[in-house]
Amino acid sequence: MQVVANGIITGLTIVVLALGFTAAYLPTRVFHLALGGIYAAAPFCAWTCLRLGWSPWFALGLAVLAGAGLSLACEAANHALLDRKRAPSGAHLIASLGAYIVIAQATAMIWGNEPKVLRTGVDAVTTIGGLVLTRAQLMAAAVSIGVLAIFYVWLRFSGLGLRFRALAENSVEFALRGYNVRRLRLLAFGISGVLCSTSSLLVANDVGFDAHGGLHATILAVVAVIIGGRRSFYGPLVGGLLLGLVRSGAVWFFSARWQEAVTFLLLALFLFFRPSGLLGRKGRMEADV
């Protein structure tokens, strides 16, 4: 049971980050690897604010805003310009990888390479029906569920959410119906940044953070997106939870050392046998010919 609980909580933080990736990927088709840099930078912002003695909520809010700002900067200074030149998707991917390196290394230069923690002292532990959970874990679960609920409700029921889905489905037709695609792309990158930094802060609060873990976390999120199905906003939800459970199971049955091997074996298996993911539909094959 403890394994499942830990897996679900890890999974929820992966889901939030994976949803951040999807929120940029589906509407813009940009492989937003720069999220790795944002993931690394956000907790440092919060850490500095806390060191300045500001209130925790203000510090966290500012860190989330900083994440959104960085993500918007990636779109405005990088992907929007490439998009106007009709750059192929590979160019976006490499440019985004470059942006990741720049952000992550800037973070390392400003704050150093050492791991840090957000909270001080030993975390309080709660026991619920035989499950031992730390307060940071509970907070991660609660905030993740809250953020996910807000996002999905917004996506499903609001007018802007409808437009967001329409852009993700068919950006050309969306533009032809008179909607400003550029403005909505900014929204996509903004949401992406917010979700990414939220996930990053939750994990940092639980296990600490350093300047170099961002790409790894982002790649895990991408694995979750592929497993769940990259054509749907609900793919990350399914994939992230599954990945969290599998990773926590791997620790339980083998050892923490094999977590990565198991993760990427899972990715390879999905790519081979179900490349469209758990929620994916088979498209018309003729597109290949």
Partner: peptide, 24 residues
């Protein structure tokens, strides 16, 4: 020394971005 390693990687990253924009 400490900043140099970060700066070097930053230069790589920046080069990747610039290449994609101006000389794909």
């Amino acid at each position: 020394q400490a900043a140099a390693s970060s700066l070097r990687l930053m230069a790589y990253g920046l080069l990747l971005i610039l290449m994609m924009h101006f000389r794909p």
